[in-house]
Simulated assay, not measured.
Amino acid sequence: MTTHQPRPTRILVVDDEPLVRAGITGILSTDPGNDVVAEAGTGLDGLTAVRTHRLDAVLLDIRMPDMSGLEVFCELCRAGVTVPCLFVTTFGEDDYIEEAVRLGASGFVLKSGDPHELLMGVRAVAGGGAFFSPAVARRLLDGRLAASFSETQRARVQFEELTPREQEVLRLIGRGLSNAEIAADLFLAEGTVKVHVSSILRTTGARNRVEAALVAVRSHEA
């Protein structure tokens, strides 16, 4: 009997530095479940590649000279392209990160971080989840970006307003799980998880899955 092999995760890597781009591609290629189908050295080339290829995830350097990753993301949003975008960032790019969160980016990894975080991030966002490198999450919560989100006490109140099942779902969102993974973990139908996620966003006031994950992190439930 022929064993069905899952389709690999099709990825686009966009970074203006050739060595960094090659390094990211090399790390991703260590997982046989990944397929880097295209690379781009400019934001404009990245936009073209997104329109050319069928993708499961896009890795975007958040700051590039011709067209930043944020500008690429904004253009994709305007065009109605919903491919998950994982931003690759460095310290000191808080303004970009804040705006990317507001617009609904799927996650962030540090260029100087653990390569395993890159693999985890791609797996999470390609599956419909959200992912933060721990160092990025700390900056979101501890730096001046913290003004964009609730204080810890408010996050706790928001969390307590959820039903017990919604709290379970939010904890798993905070850990970067996709709806399918949450459904498997909690023995629920994926459609039921989607209903819970919609209710969580409505109750907490989170504008997207990333902000919901931040509620879980700030309330120390992720």
Rank of each mutant, 00 (worst) to 15 (best):
F149Q: 09
R144F: 12
V36W: 10
F73T: 01
L28E: 12
L47P: 02
G33V: 06
L177F: 11
L59V: 04
V169M: 04
E151K: 13
R175S: 11
H220S: 12
G26L: 11
P32R: 09
T25Y: 07
H116P: 02
A130E: 07
D15H: 05
L70H: 05
T90L: 11
L177E: 10
H116N: 10
L70V: 02
H116G: 06
Q167T: 08
A130T: 15
S178C: 11
V136G: 01
T82F: 01
G113A: 13
G104S: 12
L59W: 02
L103Y: 11
S29M: 13
Q153E: 14
F87G: 06
I182H: 03
I62D: 00
L44K: 12
I182L: 06
V83E: 04
E17G: 00
A38R: 06
C74A: 15
I27E: 09
I97V: 15
H196E: 14
M1I: 13
M1D: 10
D16M: 05
T25M: 13
R171P: 00
Q153S: 14
T82W: 00
H4Y: 07
P32Y: 05
A212H: 05
M1S: 12
V157I: 12
L47K: 01
G143E: 05
G80A: 04
R207T: 06
A184C: 05
G26S: 08
G23W: 00
S150H: 06
H196C: 08
G46F: 03
L103A: 10
V20M: 02
D142A: 14
S199N: 09
R21C: 14
D16C: 07
R63T: 02
F87E: 05
E161V: 01
P134E: 15
V210R: 02
D35K: 09
T163W: 01
G113M: 08
V81L: 11
G33I: 04
F87R: 05
A180S: 07
Q153W: 08
D35S: 12
L44N: 11
G205S: 07
R10H: 13
H53M: 14
V81Y: 09
D16V: 05
E39Q: 08
L103E: 07
H4A: 08
M67Q: 12
E71Q: 15
L28I: 15
R207H: 11
L76R: 00
L12E: 05
